[in-house]
Nucleic acid binder design. Structure first.
Lengths: 117, 117
DNA sequence: ACATCAATTCTATATTTCTAGAATATTAGT
DNA sequence: ACTAATATTCTAGAAATATAGAATTGATGT
């Protein structure tokens, strides 16, 4: 049963998302947000938790938001950020692993698991 | 059974691994290897499959190998590459998501799943 | 209206990564 | 030993990303 169709994650999108995770600073930011859960944190609180300053933090959060890993909602004069990484990471794993061994029909044993993350 | 010892994934390692995935070229390379399965492909075959040339391909494969996503074994005058991304990706998801909502004890409903990728 | 707070955009510099040509191993065949 | 095949290191210019100071926008309170 083939599931994914044209709504598929493109290589470009997936690479962009992985790249967003591929920085210690951003990964730290995202982990703080994951810990915070759906309630989220403002940019300011995020700054205190991570030690990253204004323009730099904006830059990194934008990167994460573009990659679909973080959601931002305006609330008063703050902006609340929340991780939406849960499903996205599943999707990315899927993108990378779902076609595991598709080209290796010949051998009879010793494969890795198929269509299973 | 291979179990990771005291070597818990560090932020640095995780970021490095995600960064390795965060390039269209490398993600393409890795996907070809994932499709090929445990049998693997030589650098040359990988080059034909991806259209990336000598020094550049070496560079990218090295990146992936360092990140623990690819294994290399010398065989004759070729080098056989195989994806070991399966467990690594699990480990990375875990690193990112396992502490989901740990800081959000206050609210009673509406969280995302916990300790589950 | 004014002052303040929160975050962004503008701008510029520093650093890292990408790409690829050329030279250098290393292995295999004759 | 010589040649071809496979892949790597060396090297360097191009491109992208990181960092941060200063000016700017937008919202809130007095």
């Amino acid at each position: 049963m083939k599931i994914s169709k044209h709504t598929d994650t493109t290589l470009e999108d997936a690479a962009q998302a992985f790249a967003a995770l591929g920085s210690e600073q951003r990964l730290g930011v995202l982990r703080v947000l994951v810990r915070a859960g759906p309630v989220g944190l403002s940019i300011g609180e995020l700054g205190k938790a991570t030690g990253i300053t204004g323009a730099t933090l904006t830059h990194h959060v934008k990167f994460l938001t573009h990659a679909g890993l973080v959601d931002q909602v305006k609330k008063g004069r703050s902006i609340i950020c929340a991780a939406v990484a849960y499903d996205t990471v599943d999707r990315l794993s899927q993108f990378l692993l779902s076609e595991c061994c598709a080209d290796a029909e010949a051998d009879s044993h010793g494969h890795h698991r198929k269509n299973n993350v």
